[in-house]
């Protein structure tokens, strides 16, 4: 387990050495502050649009950081040929996958904490209310979603040729699931066969990432989701993460690293 945490530590260090996070955080902060500074009809109490914009930026930024960070982990090790001394430590290929996953997950967790802290300060200063538990729920669910995304991207990085293609395909898949995942069954019913069966199959088979989007509860002050449901969704995320990591490990185990 120590080896896995050492590997994870390297990934976390990489996040704060690279500029991705800082650029995206500053961009989010500047756009949110600019939006918050606008005065509509001389009403100082209007706040939901600021929450909406800020959360949208947080979602986009966290997805960019997650996908870009995870996509380059294994290809970068292979390209720099540091994968060989790493495997000669000895560290098993499974530990490499687990270490890279944990590193990316903790790194995105740190990024989420910073983003949500900023969000809470900005909206709290305007609204004068601090629904901390609602924010924690939303952040936790987003972090659970990011675990699935990291596992998915690591799996992609084993099979796709370059980090750029892995990132692009991962973005399309994640955005597709978030936007139409919940409606895929309805779309399937309107299609002729065999498309109907194919889409229905995909609907039941894919990870339902849209469940982890709790921003509406935060924006519209709609209270909290019951903790039992949060726990069930977290288990669901853990199962999907395990499946994808297992598939990544199976692919990586047979991968010829010299080519």
């Amino acid at each position: 387990m120590n080896k896995i945490f050492t590997l994870a530590g390297v990934v976390i260090k990489e996040l704060y050495r690279r500029k991705d996070f800082y650029v995206l955080f500053v961009l989010t902060a500047v756009l949110t502050l600019a939006a918050g500074a606008v005065n509509f009809f001389r009403d100082e109490k209007i706040v939901r649009y600021v929450k909406d914009i800020c959360l949208l930026l947080i979602w986009i930024s966290s997805l960019v950081i997650t996908i870009v960070t995870a996509a380059r982990q294994i290809p970068a090790e292979r390209e720099a040929r540091t994968i060989f001394p790493l495997l000669a430590k000895p560290v098993s290929r499974g530990q490499v996958i687990a270490g890279k996953f944990l590193g990316c997950w903790f790194a995105t967790g740190i990024a989420l904490v910073v983003f949500y802290f900023f969000f809470a300060v900005i909206t709290g200063s305007k609204e004068q209310t601090w629904p901390v538990l609602t924010y924690l729920e939303a952040a936790w669910m987003q972090w659970c979603l990011l675990a699935i995304v990291i596992a998915l991207v690591l799996l992609g990085s084993i099979y796709f040729a370059a980090p750029s293609s892995t990132s692009t395909i991962s973005f399309i898949v994640v955005a597709g699931i978030l936007l139409v995942g919940g409606h895929l069954h309805v779309i399937a019913l309107q299609q002729p066969e065999p498309m109907q069966t194919v889409l229905t199959f995909v609907y039941y088979l894919m990870p339902h990432l849209e469940w982890f989007y709790l921003s509406d509860f935060v924006i519209y002050d709609f209270g909290r989701v019951p903790l039992l449901k949060i726990a069930e969704a977290s288990v669901y995320a853990a199962v999907w993460t395990e499946i994808l990591l297992l598939l990544a490990w199976l692919g990586f185990r047979r991968k010829n690293l010299t080519t």
């Binding site: 919940g182 069954h185 469940w211 989007y213 019951p226 449901k229």
Partner: peptide, 10 residues
């Protein structure tokens, strides 16, 4: 899936 998903949307 739809039934469970409704816990996470308004």
């Amino acid at each position: 899936i739809d039934a469970f998903g409704r816990n996470f949307k308004i």
